[in-house]
Nucleic acid binder design. Structure first.
Lengths: 173, 173
DNA sequence: CTAAATCTCTTAGTGGCTAAGATATATATC
DNA sequence: GATATATATCTTAGCCACTAAGAGATTTAG
């Protein structure tokens, strides 16, 4: 594999461009939460529910990185807003499944319309084949980021004297 | 333009894949902040400083969507941690430029190594031409998300009775 | 049948955030 | 050139989401 200067520059530019766009994506999410009048974490959980369907409170904690206590608060607020429902699992009565209430959650979904329209416009300029490339990249990128997250977390479990010299805090589980 | 079923399905899959990977990207950032022992917003500002170089406190507020008061707190914490420096603008003494202290900020940068390695691995599977496609998409996607953010914000300025029925909160400037 | 594990919820305390206004400096108007 | 308005950052009070620790309820293991 030839690692020419041009390619290195390309890779750097790509990294910067992706950081920029992903940062802007975060801002879009903040704006949605702001307009909807719910907390950021609340919206993040709605997003997870949209992607994964019916999940347990514990799973939400796992995916968001919040404590279970914080998740209880999230669900309380979302439930009070009529956006989700708690459903005890009849098989294992310790578990609480959370599911969205489609009629009200739809209102949140509408706030993504500007984003969808913008993306539709962007995607419109690409051929099916190009879109498949983007899809492949999105999937592989996801796996890569996931692996990187695990690698970073595992840094915490390596002997402290072998780590980069940082003020370290215990990572929440 | 033929909008076949296959293409619609492809677009949906693409949207889901991108949401997934971007959500995971957010989690990576949270983990970095956690390991570094700084707040999320603090890390976000470090990121902006990395991308934009020397910027004013006000610019940080603008880009992050935080109030100037919150930014003061961010800078206080970062300065105390030795990660940034305040520098009064001599031309306009109301302004405060913030710049990173490279020696210490490097330690934060190291936490992105797992991410860079993962991305290097992913990118390695693509030709230069394919990478250019990804770059083009990242740039266009950024513009799209930016436009969508503005469109969403402007929803707030439209007559309230014409908006989707939502609990609305005033959006911070 | 008891002990340990698992899952969610509760409580107390902490810290970053907003809103409002104070302070300092710059620009515009007369 | 003096006064008024605008701009940029900081300060303060109060709020609310978060963590840490542990309680309560249920399941699984020995």
């Amino acid at each position: 594999m030839s690692r020419t200067k041009a390619r290195v520059a390309l890779l750097q530019e790509l990294e910067a461009a992706m950081r920029r766009s992903s940062a802007q994506g975060v801002l879009y999410g903040q704006t949605v939460a702001n307009v909807a009048g719910i907390a950021n974490s609340d919206l993040e959980c709605m997003d997870i529910l949209y992607l994964e369907g019916r999940v347990t409170a514990g799973r939400l904690a796992e995916v968001t990185g919040l404590t279970t206590g914080a998740i209880t608060g999230v669900i309380d607020r979302l439930e009070k807003a009529g956006l989700v429902r708690r459903e005890r699992d009849e098989k294992d009565r310790r578990k609480v499944f959370i599911s969205v209430v489609p009629e009200t959650a739809m209102k949140i979904g509408q706030l993504y319309v500007p984003m969808q329209q913008a993306m539709e416009k962007v995607f419109g300029a690409y051929s099916d084949e190009e879109l498949r490339l983007l899809l492949r990249f999105a999937n592989e990128g996801y796996k890569g980021v996931l692996a990187a997250t695990e690698a970073l977390k595992s840094l915490l479990d390596t002997p402290p004297e072998k780590r980069p010299d940082l003020k370290l805090k215990k990572l929440r589980r």
